[in-house]
């Protein structure tokens, strides 16, 4: 069985907001170490990977590995019924087809109970190899959100170039083009500043609609890390106290 007590429902609400438009149904894999989710979007271009560590919960118990198949739209609706600062308790029995959620109000005696149907999901999981990336960029997550939103007005794709100069985001639309250069900030470390580590010049092109989607996770962390190597998927990572959310995005490559 699973019983997990989260100090604030906000984390789950924000996580669901970050993935619900990318993925329709997914398995939350629960085990004694915590809760993990890995899911690809329908077109198999992007993958989201979530980890919530057992230590991030006020109380956590999971006796044996338990996949909780969830429709993310339904989960989002049920979580909307929780206030951000409610304590959130999720429970599932072994082989159950129901997930129960309890929201305890912080400053009153209000206790709300909801139940959600679980489903069997036959999803492909992928082996993601450990990669030594050629470039790592760490920047304020709000800055990343602004860049991808701004450039998505101009065109469908962004070219990301990491060089000695810094990291440059380039959009070449049909009617307009633009580019944004971020230099490493020497006097300011993350979360406010930008750090760039580079072993090799990197130049990759990605679809902006996915990056705009990933940027929703800025509600979970003030810092985002971009990890890039030529001709491999981009890793966009947001770390927060209880775990992380990571996105992988396949590049666009010339024939």
């Amino acid at each position: 069985m699973l019983e997990a007590r989260l100090a604030e429902a906000a984390i789950l609400k924000r996580l669901l907001d970050s993935i619900k438009e990318l993925v329709t149904d997914a398995n939350f894999e629960c085990n004694e170490e915590g809760i993990n989710l890995q899911a690809m979007d329908n077109s198999h271009v992007a993958l989201v990977s979530v980890k919530l560590s057992a230590s991030g919960f006020k109380k956590y118990r999971c006796d044996r590995p338990l996949p909780l198949g969830v429709n993310l739209g339904s989960f989002t609706k049920v979580l909307k019924c929780a206030k951000d600062d409610d304590v959130c308790i999720i429970k599932a029995a072994d082989d159950a087809d129901i997930l129960s959620l309890t929201y305890e109000a912080r400053n009153s005696d209000r206790i709300a109970e909801y139940e959600m149907k679980l489903m069997d999901i036959d999803a492909d999981t992928l082996n993601i190899p450990d990669t030594d990336y050629d470039a790592r960029v760490s920047m304020p997550s709000a800055e990343f959100t602004r860049i991808v939103r701004d450039l998505s007005q101009l065109g469908e794709s962004v070219r990301i170039e990491v060089s000695k100069e810094g990291v440059r985001f380039i959009s070449d639309g049909e009617a307009a083009n633009g580019n944004i250069l971020l230099r490493q900030t020497d006097d300011d470390a993350p979360p406010e500043g930008v750090t760039i580590e580079m072993n090799q010049h990197v130049n990759l092109t990605f679809s902006l609609k996915y990056l705009v989607n990933f940027a929703k996770s800025s509600t979970l962390s003030n810092v985002v890390q971009l990890m890039l190597s030529n001709d491999v998927p981009l890793l966009v990572s947001y770390d927060f106290n209880q775990g992380h959310i990571r996105y992988y995005l396949a590049p666009k490559i010339g024939d």
Binding site: A46, A250, K252, I253, D255
Partner: peptide
């Protein structure tokens, strides 16, 4: 002309 690659061409199934 660039072509969108699939993640499956980078990451294998376990």
């Amino acid at each position: 002309k660039l072509k969108q690659k699939s993640l499956m061409s980078f990451f294998g199934k376990p």
